[in-house]
Amino acid sequence: MSKDDQHITSYKTISLVLLGLLFFTFLTVAITRVELGPYNTSAAMIIAGLKAALVLVYFMHLKFDQKVFGIMVIFVLLVFLAVIVVTFFDYLYR
C-alpha cells in the first residue's frame, strides 16, 4: 500500500488557495472595467492562467504527485499552444 506516503493537503492550504482564486477573480473583473486597450485581453488571460495554475498545482495535487504528471501537463499545454500558433500562421497573414 502506498497510502502511508500520501501527502495530505491541509484545510489551511486549501482555504488560502481559495482566497487567492477569489482575489484574482475580483481583480480580473476590476481590471477589465479600466480601459487598457489591447492589454485588456492579455491581462485577463494572464490572470486566468494564474488561476488555472493554482488549481492545477494545489487542488489537482501536481505539486505533491510524481513528477511525471507535471511533465505530462506541461507537455500537453505546450502542444496545444503550438497548435494555436500554427493555426494563426494562416489567419494572421490572410
Binding site: 477573480t25 480580473t28 473583473v29 477589465t32 485588456n40 485581453t41 485577463a44 488571460m45 490572470i47 486566468a48 488561476k51 488555472a52 488549481v55 492545477l56 487542488f59 489537482m60 495535487h61
Partner: peptide, 25 residues
C-alpha cells in the same frame, strides 16, 4: 481523487470561459 480531478477540470475550463465571454472588451 479521480472524481475530484474531474471536478477541478470543469473549474479550470470555466476559469477561461469566464473572461473570454464576460470580461474581454
Amino acid at each position: 481523487e479521480n472524481g475530484g480531478l474531474y471536478w477541478h477540470l470543469v473549474d479550470v475550463i470555466w476559469i477561461f470561459l469566464f473572461p473570454l465571454f464576460y470580461l474581454i472588451h
